[in-house]
Amino acid sequence: MLLTVLALAGCRRVGELPVDPHQTRVARDSQAEPAAAEHEEAGPDSATDEEEVSQAAPEGPLLFVASGLVLDRRGPGGRLFEVARRTSERVGHQRTIGRKSYSIALRSENLTYYPCSSCHVPGSRIMHEQRASDVHQDIQPVHPAENNAVCTACHVVDDPEWLTIAGTDPVPLNEAYRLCAQCHFIQVQAWAGGAHGKRLDTWRGPRVVMSCTDCHNPHDPGIPTRIPFPGPRVPRTGPRQP
């Protein structure tokens, strides 16, 4: 019951977007400048799904972590740790849970074909027509199961950078967590608090977290098995080794 209320509250608050994304999309189409696109994605905060939600003050178009806080993420020998390789120095919009605020790393930084508008001209309906031969052959959507292989279950037809959310206007790709939160609201709650997902770089100061889709493939969220890194020679506990 409580969860239902939370979910409903989340949906309702998502609906209270201070800026109409559709309008900004139209505006972006006319400008077609990357800087403008970033401005809109970073747009005003729309905190969701938690009690005591306080609207964060609209920050600048894009938050930059102060250069002194961006620490060298390289490990020994100059190599990067696996997850650190996916981090971004530029962070997106801010959210607030209780009195804590945090920022979400820009997902679009790590997308091969971003921005989508480089191919998807608005109104061309390219998403349907070129499905058989397009560059997204590697995407085999299995999630959500009941809408298998239908891009438009989540993506806006005209502009796949925007995602469809039930009962409200579309949200940009960098706020994909709001799409996920429609069903996985418990996980998003833990993610906002800090028990799920990953914080980047530092344990103190401004908190920057990775977005859902930084780790989970939204088209195929199942976790594949793999061979682990080598284990120890001396197990110490457990059954005695011969």
Binding site: I227, G231, T237, G238
Partner: peptide, 11 residues
Amino acid sequence: DHADATFQHEV
């Protein structure tokens, strides 16, 4: 006591 720390199979 019955855990395995030396596993080296697919995880």
